[in-house]
């Protein structure tokens, strides 16, 4: 188990009590997201689809790399890693 920080994008902060970062522990990205979901109800369904994959309009980064390039949700974590949930944002006006 590794302790990691998950960065919460603004649109999902209503589900984390306003927190922009949540600390969780887990051995893999999947574990960490599950732990986030256990802590804060409703977040997980915004990130993962019904089949458990990352939604097509959301990306999850481990450090500066998309987890897609690191083996997906099974990518392994180490202490101090930073996960960032980055959804598509349209605003510009």
């Amino acid at each position: 188990m590794s302790n990691v920080t998950v960065r919460i994008p603004t649109p999902l902060r209503s589900m984390t009590g306003g927190a922009d970062e949540v600390t969780v522990s887990g051995a893999t990205v999947k574990d960490a997201l599950d732990a986030l979901g256990a802590k804060h109800e409703g977040v997980l369904s915004k990130v993962l689809d019904a089949k458990g994959g990352v939604r097509s309009f959301v990306n999850v980064y481990l450090g500066s790399r998309n987890i897609k390039a690191l083996g997906g949700l099974g990518a392994e974590l180490k202490d101090g890693d930073v996960l960032a949930i980055v959804p598509a944002v349209a605003g510009g006006k």
Binding site: P11, K46, R55, F57, N59, P87, A90
Partner: peptide
């Protein structure tokens, strides 16, 4: 990056 836009219920 994002192959499809989010469905309305998923957008902020």
């Amino acid at each position: 990056l994002y192959p499809e836009p989010p469905p309305p219920e998923m957008a902020p």
